[in-house]
Design a protein around this nucleic acid. Sequence first.
DNA 1: CACTGTGAAGGATTTCACAGCG
DNA 2: CGCTGTGAAATCCTTCACAGTG
Lengths: 235, 235
Amino acid sequence: MLNRSTLIPDKKSEITDRTVGRLVAYRRLLVRLQDNDVTLVSSKAIGDMLGIKSSQVRKDLSYLGEFGKRGVGYNVGRLLGDLTGILAPFNPWQIGLVGMGRLGEALIGHSALWGENYEIVCAFDNDDAKVGTSVFGKPCYHVNDMARKIEEYGIGVLIIAVPSKVAQRVLDLALDTGQIIGVLNFSAAALAVPPEVELSDVDISVELEKLLFRLKLKEQKKLLGLVESMGSDDY
Amino acid sequence: MLNRSTLIPDKKSEITDRTVGRLVAYRRLLVRLQDNDVTLVSSKAIGDMLGIKSSQVRKDLSYLGEFGKRGVGYNVGRLLGDLTGILAPFNPWQIGLVGMGRLGEALIGHSALWGENYEIVCAFDNDDAKVGTSVFGKPCYHVNDMARKIEEYGIGVLIIAVPSKVAQRVLDLALDTGQIIGVLNFSAAALAVPPEVELSDVDISVELEKLLFRLKLKEQKKLLGLVESMGSDDY
DNA sequence: CACTGTGAAGGATTTCACAGCG
DNA sequence: CGCTGTGAAATCCTTCACAGTG
């Protein structure tokens, strides 16, 4: 169960969520490089391709050990293997998808969510038209059967893709099993989970509004700059 | 065009992206409170409902002005109005959706992306079966017509929901119009945009992998703790 | 020589702690 | 008295700068 290659190095305590996000991106890039028969890459090259400073890349990788050769760079295959091992779970995760609406379907079909290391094993919905069907080979069960199916499938992680009004209620049904340890929440609800459960929120409309606000700030700066350049003092 | 109520206060320069994200959440919460006829709320109450420290709530709001009454709290209606004004754009944004796959459809149907202040006006795809159709009332055009339609509709913001292999190519077609100032990228590609264009990435699989890695770290800590509690020293 | 690995500096964000006020 | 608003402290994250090395 605990095999050496996937163990996270001792400095692990310093690996933050932000670093992990970048590690995932590095790994994706390395896969592409390997496909293109690139065998060597520098932190500068990685950074340029991802829009990150090279020092950030080196710092991130340094948390995991010493992978590079000074004066040379990183061996693509070796680094890819090491990153893959570090990111890989000890055992594959079984994931349940709650909510088979448009977003749920999009997620279940999302190729990036079909890995060797984790798998959406089934979905849940309260719409009788969907219950009993299969989407991309994943069966859809009624929300009322969730607790039972979570145990049957050994599901430890849930993806929540239901309307925010019902998100907490439906989640609580699942938490009652005591078997859920991680939740990825796509609803706009601020979900409550016990402290031992990891919760992560992806709020699509917040992301859009953040972007639009940045644009507004820029617009305002431009407009105010204009006013100032007309020199109110001089009039 | 520049109306007073939507102007961002002078301290605006301190408003960070993170703060904006929380402001959006505060506004959503306030709408709910107002619907439930709550008229008064404290920073502590807001924080508790959203899983945030009350000091964070107060600091965020303080960037925008003084909205609360000491010893009392915040007036829900007043604060809601102020936040709405500050977050509202000077003019509604016209948004184009690139990619009408499952994720694109989910986004176009996502109720949260239909606001008074922004609207997805149309979609683009390269699949002839989709071009010419309408989804949720939004017409779908061919990617080759994108530049023309961006100008026709006055689109300033794009949502990218195409496979990462083609994302940059398709985006470049749009950027050539010189009219795009913001891009919300759902693909896994690290997109390049000119410095005057705001880019924001929402990477669904990175979010999932980050969560799974946190779970792995916890698991490892537990396992190592177990080893330690067996007290190798004592044997 | 070119690049990594990393302490130390610099920035950014959160939290504290308390003065100030209704 | 209770809660806001805010400097100051603490924490977290990124960038710099350079010693170290193949």
